[in-house]
């Protein structure tokens, strides 16, 4: 079934056959989970979001239009779920729980490089945590999911102009929080052979 396009898989689901559910899950669960995890800053909530998004995908399959991108539709459902979650006051208190949660050290790098990466990761998490929910949603979809502003506008239910403003303000905040040494240049271009 993995040779079928997203649209073909969804047509099968729309016809009442849920056999493609697993394949669709495999294609998108990683992106959905990571988006929710970074948006909500809570691993448990991200798990709930991921499961619920795919359940809703099945429930509302008939509303998926074949000429749309499945990824955009799924992120719309995810973002709605996450916004609802954050609206509940009890959940806001849980937001910061996982901010400091770090991944296990990777043996792929030297201890020094590994420490650098983990510190950088922590800085980025804190910086993202300082954004408003709207800004965080926009920057996560733009930077980590590579979606266009038009797609983000559809997902966020706002205009493209509003997305541009959110990304701009998010970048201003992030820029203040993060500093990095940018190395390299185009020296090799001047080296003739």
């Amino acid at each position: 079934m993995n040779h079928l396009s997203d649209q073909e898989l969804m047509k099968i689901v729309q016809a009442g056959d849920y056999a493609p559910a697993s394949e669709i899950y495999d294609r998108y669960s990683g992106r959905i989970y990571n988006f929710a995890f970074r948006f909500l800053k809570n691993a448990e909530a991200a798990e709930d979001a991921t499961q619920e998004v795919f359940v809703r995908m099945i429930k509302y399959a008939s509303q998926f239009q074949g000429d749309a991108k499945l990824s955009t539709w799924l992120f719309s459902i995810t973002a709605n779920w996450c916004r609802d979650y954050l609206r509940k006051s009890d959940n806001k208190a849980k937001e910061a729980e996982d901010v400091l949660l770090s991944l296990p050290a990777s043996s792929e790098y030297s201890p020094e490089r590994d420490l650098e990466r983990r510190e950088s990761e922590l800085r980025v998490k804190r910086a993202l945590g300082a954004l408003t929910a709207e800004q965080r949603e926009a920057i996560l979809l733009s930077r980590y999911q590579g979606l266009s502003y038009a797609e983000i506008a559809l997902i966020a239910g706002c205009s493209e102009g509003a997305v541009k403003t959110r990304v701009f303000r998010a970048m201003e905040t992030l820029k203040k929080a993060l500093t990095a040494d940018v190395g390299g240049g185009g020296r090799w271009l001047n080296a003739t052979r």
């Binding site: 970074r38 990466r117 950088s120 980025v124 998490k125 920057i139 930077r143 980590y144 970048m171 990095a180």
Partner: peptide, 8 residues
Amino acid sequence: TWSELGEL
């Protein structure tokens, strides 16, 4: 900044 965001 954009580059460092990629560290996540």
